Measured scan of single mutants.
Amino acid sequence: MASQGTKRSYEQMETDGERQNATEIRASVGKMIDGIGRFYIQMCTELKLSDYEGRLIQNSLTIERMVLSAFDERRNKYLEEHPSAGKDPKKTGGPIYKRVDRKWMRELVLYDKEEIRRIWRQANNGDDATAGLTHMMIWHSNLNDTTYQRTRALVRTGMDPRMCSLMQGSTLPRRSGAAGAAVKGVGTMVMELIRMIKRGINDRNFWRGENGRKTRSAYERMCNILKGKFQTAAQRAMMDQVRESRNPGNAEIEDLIFLARSALILRGSVAHKSCLPACVYGPAVASGYDFEKEGYSLVGIDPFKLLQNSQVYSLIRPNENPAHKSQLVWMACNSAAFEDLRVLSFIRGTKVSPRGKLSTRGVQIASNENMDAMESSTLELRSRYWAIRTRSGGNTNQQRASAGQISVQPAFSVQRNLPFDKPTIMAAFTGNTEGRTSDMRAEIIRMMEGAKPEEMSFQGRGVFELSDERAANPIVPSFDMSNEGSYFFGDNAEEYDN
Rank of each mutant, 00 (worst) to 15 (best):
A2T: 00
A2S: 01
A2R: 01
S3R: 02
T6W: 03
E11H: 08
Q12I: 06
E14S: 01
E18H: 13
E18S: 09
K31T: 06
I33L: 15
G37N: 08
I41V: 12
T45D: 09
L47V: 14
L47R: 12
Y52T: 15
G54N: 10
G54F: 02
L56F: 04
I57S: 03
N59Q: 04
R65W: 04
A70C: 11
D72R: 12
R74F: 08
N76A: 08
K77R: 15
L79W: 04
H82C: 14
H82M: 14
S84R: 00
D88H: 02
T92H: 07
G93D: 06
K103I: 08
L110Y: 02
R117P: 00
N125E: 10
D128A: 14
G132A: 13
L133T: 02
H135M: 13
M136R: 00
N142T: 03
T147Q: 12
R150N: 08
R152D: 04
V155L: 05
R156S: 09
R156I: 09
T157F: 02
T171E: 07
A178L: 14
A178D: 11
A182G: 11
V183L: 06
G187Q: 03
L193R: 00
I194Y: 05
R195N: 04
W207L: 07
G209E: 07
K214S: 02
S217A: 14
S217K: 03
E220I: 11
R221T: 03
G228Y: 03
G228F: 06
F230W: 14
Q231K: 14
A233Y: 00
R243I: 06
E244M: 06
R246V: 06
P248A: 14
I253R: 02
F258P: 04
L259S: 10
S262I: 06
S262Q: 12
S262T: 08
A263H: 02
C279G: 12
V280C: 13
P283S: 13
V285L: 09
G288F: 12
D290W: 07
E294A: 13
L298E: 01
G300Q: 05
S310R: 00
L315I: 15
R317H: 07
E320S: 07
K325G: 03
S326C: 12
Q327W: 03
W330G: 05
M331K: 06
N334I: 04
A336N: 11
A336I: 01
E339A: 06
S345M: 04
I347V: 14
T350G: 15
S353D: 00
P354V: 09
L358S: 01
L358E: 06
S359G: 02
T360V: 15
G362W: 07
V363N: 04
Q364M: 15
A366I: 11
A366K: 03
S367A: 14
I388Y: 08
S392L: 02
N397T: 08
Q398F: 09
A403D: 01
F412I: 13
V414E: 01
R416P: 01
I425G: 00
M426H: 03
G431W: 06
T433F: 13
T433V: 11
D439Q: 06
A442H: 00
P453C: 13
S457T: 11
F458H: 13
G462L: 14
F464M: 00
D468R: 00
I475N: 01
M481V: 11
N498I: 14
